[in-house]
Design a protein around this nucleic acid. Structure first.
Length: 843
DNA sequence: CTCTCCCT
């Protein structure tokens, strides 16, 4: 104990704590701070009461307690004790108690004064877990008001010491050195054709095995990369090398195999996630190969879901990984990135509080009496978006009232050691006598999956398969459990957790009640996860839409494949489609019976472009999913007309029955509007009609529900509806449909908006007329298209008089040659107009 | 060839 480097700073640390009550100890791994500091400080005369030390992991808490007990020549539970979930070793004699983070929060909530405690130590604070940040905020609150004599010590390996010191009220910073061996760092470039990280890692491992001695620890981001690397590596390496995967979801027997050195002394390659960074220590490692990647959860407050992202590690994490090669003697570290990249790494990983589901934290704060996070002091305050999402969820679960204050149900939920959703489920189950099943479900969802995953195991996300394993565990089939693909250690843990939950709920529940009804797992879970009830999407076998509107897939060939309705409590949000990890069947009838208040009935009246018609249906919905559809018996006529209008808008006004006569009528009107802009002529242009559809067309759409029905519309009478009798008279007068020509025939005028109307007429029919006919009270001359007897155009003019005077004689010569039998008088103005070959003769 | 880690 005397040799440890932290000994040198104990005196100054003690002085700092005595005088200012707060201190920050910065010491790298191997300094001995976790065991030396509590034991030494316990002897200080200024300390009144016991020491409470916080560890981020159960394993670390137990290990620290037993090491300290051993150093003080005692058994654990005497002077030094510990408490983690489901395991408590303390006695009246205990003066140093090591606890995990959740335990400290519980204790603070039950006894905010922390009676009998003189010093709280936060170990490994640089990991910045959500729980540790919360615990420190609560302790600062206590030490600032109720217990001004409570001393606080924050210990960390690498940390932004300045900001922590400021948070602690400018507490003194004490630094100690570590005791570890030097590790030589090598930076490597990625090979040109190595597209996958596993290819690169395999190449480096093969080189390193030849160059260096000792076991190799390889850091990879996740299980996928580990398995890919393992497959490639086992092809390349002889059997004399041992390859072990190591990650959290691996069962504990496999984890143990990876941690301990080979008794026969064969060389080992351990392919690990960041679990080997701090949580597990592997004996005999001399070489570290670091991919530089880590997977981290990202919580999205908009969806209430978490997804995993692969990120570059922080400089601090890379240093920590490196250090794993220098525990026994000098080591080597190979980094699969360049020095240029190294200089751009983030100094620290994002603290959990900035990227996590905050529902648990917000419930704890409400129980503490704090509705606004700003009432406490934080190193990084909880983000407003996630905070608001958590408050909304807790309100929906009945844990908070509208003002954000904790309710009676919220108090009961806070006492349940599980996620607030699961606590809510347990609380409700407590009243319906279904605690056993609810506790099993909550335990399954809180702990590692009891079903092992691998090539030869059951392919299932069905939570009922897990319940069946627990049944077997409790019954006589425990021995064969492994054959059914069970992770035996995980089963044991889940069963213990379930027992603890049942106990808590039965104590807390107001009326434990007799089993009033038998609820299915799906029903219980639907109540806790109403936003994750899912319906299969159409013809897809494995794709679902959740009530929240998000898409989720289940694995192909899963035992739940093809199920119509599921509740999906556990999933990865993914980018566009999520992936389900655990799900339960549910039926629409169950949803109606137990989630009735969340089901809505919508009358949907809408244009459906597929059938080109208005559809009116009654939809029974749970959020984004549709439980049933039926035709609407008495749809609101106004909404029907509106939907038809939407259809017409989407198709464009071309779909209306524009016949020739409507177009002609509109041409006349638009022409008048052009000639008399200040008069009352309405604007019936395409643009204006399209823009004003709702006003002019809507009243006429009664009973019109399909595109075909539009033929029935009398468009001309609809459009002329805006003109009164007098205006119509005036229109006929100013823009007549026909004019009479000298031959006596009535000729149609062709109106184009903005242009003079066109009169097409054979030249012979115009003999005797001196001037161009005019419309619009004589303001607008028509445009004459003078035609030959064969209706070929001869001349276009608005000046008939000029034509007679200047052009006629020339035209006459030509026509005479081509139509010799026809009548071509020398003086057209005195000649008689005719519709025939010559005037006065028969046909 | 699929899920990082941790906690009441």
């Amino acid at each position: 104990m005397e040799e440890l480097p932290v000994q040198e700073v104990i005196t100054s640390l003690s002085d700092a704590l005595r005088s200012s009550g707060r201190a920050l100890l910065s010491a790298p791994p191997g300094s001995g701070k976790t065991t030396v500091v509590p034991l030494q400080l316990l002897r200080e005369p200024w300390l009144h009461g016991s020491i409470l030390m916080l560890e981020p992991r159960r394993l670390a808490a137990r290990a620290a307690a037993s090491r300290m007990a051993w150093l003080s020549d005692e058994k654990v539970g005497q002077l030094v004790g510990y408490q983690v979930r489901l395991d408590r070793r303390v006695s009246k004699a205990t003066r140093i108690e090591v606890v995990t983070e959740g335990i400290l929060t519980r204790r603070l909530q039950q006894d905010p004064e922390l009676q009998g405690v003189g010093l709280v130590i936060f170990d490994e604070f640089h990991e910045r877990s959500l729980q540790a940040d919360l615990a420190l905020a609560l302790c600062l609150d206590v030490a600032g008001s109720l217990r001004e004599d409570l001393r606080l010590l924050v210990m960390s390996a690498t940390l932004d010491t300045l900001s922590v010191s400021r948070l602690l009220g400018d507490a003194p910073v004490i630094s100690a050195t570590g005791k570890s061996y030097p590790v030589a760092v090598n930076y490597l470039e990625r090979g040109p054709r190595e597209r996958k990280i596993s290819q690169e890692v395999v190449r480096v491992i093969c080189q390193v095995l030849q160059k260096e001695e000792g076991d190799i620890l390889v850091f990879l981001p996740g299980a996928g990369e580990i398995h890919a690397t393992q497959a490639m590596l086992s092809e390349r390496l002889d059997a004399e090398f041992l390859i072990y995967p190591l990650y959290g979801n691996l069962d504990s027997a496999a984890q143990d195999r990876a941690i301990l050195p080979d008794p026969k002394g064969r060389r080992r390659v351990i392919l690990a996630t960041s679990i080997a960074e701090t949580s597990l220590t592997i004996e005999g490692v001399k070489v570290v190969v670091d991919s530089g990647l880590a997977r981290q959860p990202r919580f999205d407050p908009n969806t209430g879901l978490t997804r995993l992202v692969t990120l570059k590690v922080s400089a601090a994490a890379a240093k920590q990984r490196c250090g794993r090669a220098g525990r026994l003697g000098p080591g080597v570290c190979y980094r699969l990135w360049t020095q240029a990249v190294q200089s751009r790494l983030q100094p620290h990983m994002q603290p959990e509080i900035l990227d996590a589901d905050l529902s648990f934290l917000v419930l704890e704060l409400a129980l503490w009496g704090v509705g606004d996070a700003a009432d406490l002091c934080w190193l990084d305050a909880p983000p407003a978006g996630a905070f608001a999402q958590a408050r909304d969820l807790l309100q929906a679960l009945g844990a908070l009232n509208k003002e954000g204050q904790i309710t009676a149900a919220g108090r009961r939920m806070a006492a349940v050691p599980a996620h607030p959703r699961l606590a809510h489920m347990l609380d409700k189950a407590g009243h319906s006598g279904q605690v056993g099943l609810a506790a099993d479900l909550a335990a399954i969802l809180s702990e590692r999956d009891v079903l092992r995953k691998g090539p030869n195991t059951l392919n299932s996300v069905d939570i009922e398969d897990r319940l069946a394993l627990l049944q077997r565990w409790r019954g006589r089939g425990r021995r064969e459990l492994a054959e059914f693909g069970a992770d035996v250690a995980a089963c044991a843990r889940v069963v213990s957790i379930s027992r603890q939950l049942q106990k808590v709920v039965n104590v807390v529940a107001q009326a434990a009640g007799s089993p009033s009804r038998t609820l299915s797992p799906g029903v219980l879970l639907a109540d806790a996860y109403p936003d994750r009830i899912a319906r299969r999407r159409g013809s897809e076998q494995n794709s679902y839409l959740m009530s929240s509107g998000r898409a989720v897939g289940i694995p192909e060939g899963d035992s739940l494949s093809g199920e119509e309705y599921l509740v999906i409590p556990s999933l990865d949000a993914g980018r566009s489609e999520g992936r389900a990890f655990l799900a339960a069947r549910v039926t629409p009838d169950q949803l109606r019976r137990f989630l009735g208040s969340q089901i809505t009935f919508d009358s949907v009246i809408t244009w459906e472009s597929r059938s080109q018609s208005v559809v009116a249906r009654k939809e029974e919905r749970l959020g984004a999913i549709e439980l049933s559809v039926a035709p609407l018996s008495d749809p609101d006529p106004a909404k029907m007309r509106k939907a038809m209008l939407d259809g017409i808008k989407s198709l464009g006004i071309e779909v209306l029955p524009w016949g020739r006569s409507v177009e002609e009528w509109r041409g006349r009107l638009l022409s008048l509007r052009h000639w008399q802009p200040d008069s009352f002529w309405p604007d019936l242009s395409d643009e204006t009609l399209s823009a004003g559809l709702d006003a002019w067309l809507e009243p006429w759409l009664q009973g019109i529900t399909r595109r075909d029905h539009l033929r029935k519309l009398g468009l001309k009478s609809i459009l002329s509806n805006g003109l009164d009798w007098k205006q119509r008279q005036r229109m006929d007068q100013l823009a007549p449909t026909h004019v009479q020509v000298p031959s006596g025939a009535n000729k149609r005028l062709g109106y184009q908006p903005g242009m003079s109307p066109v009169l097409q007429v054979r030249l012979q029919e115009m003999f005797g007329l001196m001037d161009t006919p005019r419309v619009c009270d004589g303001q607008v001359p028509v445009t004459l298209h003078l035609l030959s007897p064969a209706q070929r155009p001869i001349q276009i003019t608005q000046d008939l008089r000029g034509f007679w005077e200047r052009t006629y004689q020339e035209v006459r010569k030509e026509l005479k040659g081509r139509y010799p039998k026809h009548y071509w008088p020398e003086d057209p103005l005195v000649a008689q107009a005719t519709t025939r070959i010559r005037p006065g003769r028969g046909k």
